[in-house]
Write a protein that binds this DNA or RNA. Sequence first.
DNA 1: AACAATAATGCAAACGTTTGCATTAATTTT
DNA 2: AAAATTAATGCAAACGTTTGCATTATTGTT
Lengths: 346, 346
Amino acid sequence: MRNKQATIQDIAKTLNITASTVSRALNDHPKIKKSTKELVWATAKKLNYQPNTIASSLRKGKANTVGMIVPRINRHFFSNVITGVESILNPAGYNLIICQSEESIEKEKMNINTLIASRVSGILISLSLESTKYEHIKHAIRNNIPVVLYDRICDELDVCKVENDDVSGSYELTRHLIEQGYRKMMWIGGTRQLNTYTNRFAGYSNALAEIGIDAEKLPIFEGSISLETAYEFMKTYLDENPLPEVIVSASDYMAMGAIVAIQEKGLRIPEDIAISGYSNEPFAGLINPKLTSVEQFSKEMGQETARLLLGQISSEIPSKVKQKIMIRPKLIVRESTIKSKIIKSI
Amino acid sequence: MRNKQATIQDIAKTLNITASTVSRALNDHPKIKKSTKELVWATAKKLNYQPNTIASSLRKGKANTVGMIVPRINRHFFSNVITGVESILNPAGYNLIICQSEESIEKEKMNINTLIASRVSGILISLSLESTKYEHIKHAIRNNIPVVLYDRICDELDVCKVENDDVSGSYELTRHLIEQGYRKMMWIGGTRQLNTYTNRFAGYSNALAEIGIDAEKLPIFEGSISLETAYEFMKTYLDENPLPEVIVSASDYMAMGAIVAIQEKGLRIPEDIAISGYSNEPFAGLINPKLTSVEQFSKEMGQETARLLLGQISSEIPSKVKQKIMIRPKLIVRESTIKSKIIKSI
DNA sequence: AACAATAATGCAAACGTTTGCATTAATTTT
DNA sequence: AAAATTAATGCAAACGTTTGCATTATTGTT
């Protein structure tokens, strides 16, 4: 009944050769005769042989598995990064174990531990919102597991990093707003402890500085990056304060919350108040009005991240210089920040 | 330099006991003295011992790993199912390997093979659009790997299944439309080879039959479930045909495409033409007008799926009866199908 | 035909756990 | 205090590969 999996030994017995020869044949070792290889391959097929990755990993001391930690899988940005990573790693023979930190440092620690226990060949990680200490990550590094940080990075760790050029993305966006003639801006975004939000604010601030405006003196709201937070805040803010000309949001979700609040007051976008988002979520081009945002090339980011990791894995001596890659984002101008409404696009 | 990982043997040597005792101590075996356990745990900590899951899996013949195949990870529905699965599997000590079939049966086959090679304890799978033959899945079953199908299932396979009650979801939706007074309906959806779309159409058809209308005689459009497909189709359709009173879409994305086309013609929703979607994507509550849709409880589906699998894994004798779980969806009525526009909700 | 050189295969240990059975230590019973 | 019982630990094999080194088979050289 319980038809056990065929092993390398079974093949060996059938052909009256040793397991070593079979192993080498299967791995296309140059010292094995072509005829033998073909015999082995044929019987492997006949016996329905499936290589046992676990045994192989144990012997080799390494699993052909890579661990990837994301804050949340159901964010388009992250799921696309995952797709990018897979598109490089799978062809290279690696499997991905995906873990969610759910923005909690405790979960992140647990994730790291299971990944170490699984003897993964490498770890890709985007930090949780709570991560200010990095002992757990250093722990992985001490265990000689190559680590690559992507998107949400930190300076303290000396590892390869793939980053979005948030400063420049936000700068370009703000330049566009300035060109449209907007001056009275307002910033809404996540707390600036995360590099992404610090940098987006920096780009915004830099562009404004060029025309002599101090961003810190304009209205600023920082909170959790959710639709609800922004909606609740804006609902009261709009009543009690002079209207800004444009709301610059560090997140599409926050922008969306603001839009709902604005429209509930009967205000028009962009005529009464303009608004921009960030990261070009799929809904950005669908809502009314279509939302100006910044495309982050998440899939490409995943690919670069995976490539860096592969480089680290294959180099036996950990290279002294840790690479850092910047992904250049792209401004997507849509209706929500256009003074003269000419453009039509999805 | 290359400080090798501590093993069970290292702990044993330090304490002058055997590896077996250490192993049992670590696994909290009842026959090990409490004092010994505490010694072992202490030195394990001191030596920074990390259990080697690979060795353990090899010895036990099974990995504490579960494979999960999804068509696409960047669909909210699927990423939420994943989250649900993890919420059950991780506490039970299992890791998830996630694979994307990208709607291709070839990829699906490859996925199955890597999962078999990884000796996963079980496989969760939602079929790709192309999957009409199931040899590869039977192959996994023959290898004694428990399989659970979720969402996109098929009758041919005798395994546990978790299904959305699409018939009832679509039926409720159509009842609501009928109550609103709509009669001239139009169906747009994916090709009816997939159970989900067949069933959604069935629910629609059933409800209409009750009031003496033959759904097959109303306009029907079937195509790939994407925004673009629906948009392109609707753009010309609306010009050349009498307007339906309501468009019933089997997918939020297709509904969105239709909405864009409708609004470009200067038509108002729901006054000139109403529209509904399915599966309650996050944008459904955000767009203008807010889209009536059907919530599928994806996270719960993931949890049920995981529970079924755990049941299969723990029962040594494969139970004859394969369970089937139905998840009841919930109609979410929003502006896009309300004749009298009273309701205000996000 | 004898030898050297190379090609192909075999041997056996190792990777780090787990586990049935055997053994020894500690406790209870008579 | 010896025997019987139970508790605690040890022994050794096994899981299925991989791989350095040894051995045998094959080919080429003189």
